[in-house]
Simulated scan of single mutants.
Amino acid sequence: MVIRRIKILNILFILGIILILLYFIPLPYYVTKPGLAEPLRPYVKVAGAKKDKGEFMLTTVSMGKANVYSYLGTKLNDTYHLYKINDIKVSGESDEDYQFRQLRYMEESKQAAILNAYKQANKSYKVIENGIIVVSVIKEMPAYNVLMLGDIITKINGKAIHSLNDFTKTIKSSKPGTNFQLEVDRKGEKKYYTIKTKAFKNEPKRSGIGVSIAENLKLSTKPKVKINSEEIGGPSAGLMFALEIYDQLEDENLAKGYEIAGTGTIDKNGVVGPIGGISQKIVAASKSGAEIFFAPSENGRKNSNYYEAVQSAKKHHLKIKIVPINTYEQVISYLENLKTKK
């Protein structure tokens, strides 16, 4: 009897060890799930701003490397989504490189948010364009092992590069094998490289040097504004940052007493673009008490972010008003015409 009990305990012990090991064994996937929806005011500080009723909310998606348990979770919970590593990362990109890229996209979205809010509020701001910054380098492309993350490209063939458009127009029109001379600012030191373009493996008719880039802007504003996005990455909070900044700049209560969430990239011209994970973000927003949710409609495109959000809301029986939008001005107009909540 004692021997049998010891055998059972040994079996249970071994099973316990196996179950623990399964947690730590990574799979070649990422799992995403609804993250948080929380007020933006703690993240955004405009000098002299007053507190209003209602809130603009930041929505996020939680993502982590898959293990056996989270993988199984995607089969049991339809708000959990599974992605191959190559769907998330650029070829040859490390975890640290991926995080750098996401944080840089967040920085770019914050800059665009500030520009749009200050323009809309007719407040003073100044923009200095200072080249473009390298945020990722594709393995097996010419720039790999030549350019580094954080490099600022200031000139191509002796011509100053101020914006993304300057860069893409110059490179995009080139044929494979075209040489370009780059002037690069690397941590304050000038570097010079000659890089030859190459056709992309998956797009043989298109050539490039194999970098993802972002604009390197410097902003000064009056009144001053500070956005502390902590370790949140990606460009998808741009629209909501712009709304929170504008709300703090203006005396009028823009939220009108409502809990308002949303998502979408925003560029310098106020165009709102699509993002990933909106079906999960609408779930996070609803759980956190949001009453209104702004979703990019992509000019009415079939299967747009707006369409995806509506389908997710229906599927999960969410009681939240989803508003399709294409531009920042559309959102401002909607809110200005919104009746104050009683």
Rank of each mutant, 00 (worst) to 15 (best):
residue 2 V to A: 14
residue 6 I to A: 09
residue 6 I to V: 15
residue 7 K to Q: 13
residue 9 L to A: 15
residue 10 N to H: 04
residue 11 I to H: 05
residue 11 I to Y: 14
residue 11 I to N: 02
residue 11 I to E: 04
residue 14 I to F: 15
residue 15 L to R: 04
residue 17 I to R: 01
residue 18 I to T: 14
residue 18 I to L: 14
residue 20 I to S: 01
residue 22 L to K: 07
residue 22 L to C: 14
residue 23 Y to F: 15
residue 25 I to D: 07
residue 27 L to W: 08
residue 29 Y to S: 04
residue 42 P to T: 09
residue 43 Y to W: 13
residue 44 V to G: 01
residue 44 V to W: 07
residue 46 V to D: 04
residue 49 A to D: 03
residue 49 A to I: 00
residue 54 G to F: 01
residue 54 G to V: 12
residue 57 M to V: 11
residue 60 T to Q: 06
residue 61 V to W: 00
residue 66 A to M: 03
residue 69 Y to W: 08
residue 72 L to N: 00
residue 74 T to Q: 01
residue 79 T to F: 02
residue 79 T to M: 03
residue 83 Y to D: 03
residue 85 I to H: 03
residue 85 I to M: 09
residue 90 V to T: 14
residue 92 G to A: 10
residue 93 E to Y: 06
residue 95 D to S: 14
residue 95 D to H: 09
residue 105 Y to D: 01
residue 108 E to R: 12
residue 109 S to Q: 11
residue 112 A to E: 02
residue 116 N to H: 06
residue 118 Y to T: 08
residue 122 N to E: 15
residue 123 K to Y: 10
residue 125 Y to C: 04
residue 136 S to W: 00
residue 139 K to Y: 08
residue 140 E to H: 14
residue 141 M to C: 06
residue 151 D to G: 03
residue 153 I to W: 02
residue 157 N to C: 06
residue 157 N to A: 04
residue 161 I to R: 01
residue 164 L to G: 14
residue 165 N to K: 15
residue 167 F to Q: 02
residue 176 P to I: 09
residue 177 G to A: 10
residue 177 G to S: 10
residue 183 E to G: 07
residue 184 V to Q: 09
residue 185 D to I: 02
residue 185 D to R: 02
residue 190 K to W: 02
residue 193 Y to M: 08
residue 194 T to K: 15
residue 199 A to Q: 10
residue 207 S to G: 03
residue 214 A to R: 03
residue 215 E to K: 11
residue 216 N to Q: 08
residue 217 L to E: 05
residue 225 V to R: 00
residue 233 G to P: 01
residue 233 G to N: 06
residue 234 G to P: 04
residue 236 S to F: 00
residue 237 A to G: 04
residue 239 L to G: 08
residue 239 L to E: 10
residue 239 L to R: 10
residue 240 M to F: 07
residue 241 F to P: 00
residue 242 A to F: 06
residue 247 D to Y: 00
residue 257 G to C: 11
residue 260 I to L: 07
residue 262 G to N: 05
residue 262 G to S: 07
residue 268 K to Q: 10
residue 271 V to H: 00
residue 271 V to T: 14
residue 272 V to D: 02
residue 275 I to W: 01
residue 277 G to D: 09
residue 279 S to F: 01
residue 287 K to Y: 00
residue 289 G to K: 07
residue 289 G to R: 06
residue 290 A to D: 05
residue 293 F to R: 07
residue 295 A to H: 04
residue 299 N to R: 15
residue 309 A to M: 06
residue 310 V to E: 10
residue 315 K to Y: 13
residue 317 H to L: 09
residue 320 I to S: 11
residue 320 I to H: 03
residue 322 I to C: 05
residue 324 P to V: 09
residue 329 E to H: 12
residue 329 E to W: 01
residue 329 E to Q: 15
residue 330 Q to Y: 04
residue 331 V to D: 04
residue 332 I to R: 03
residue 332 I to M: 07
residue 333 S to D: 15
residue 334 Y to P: 10
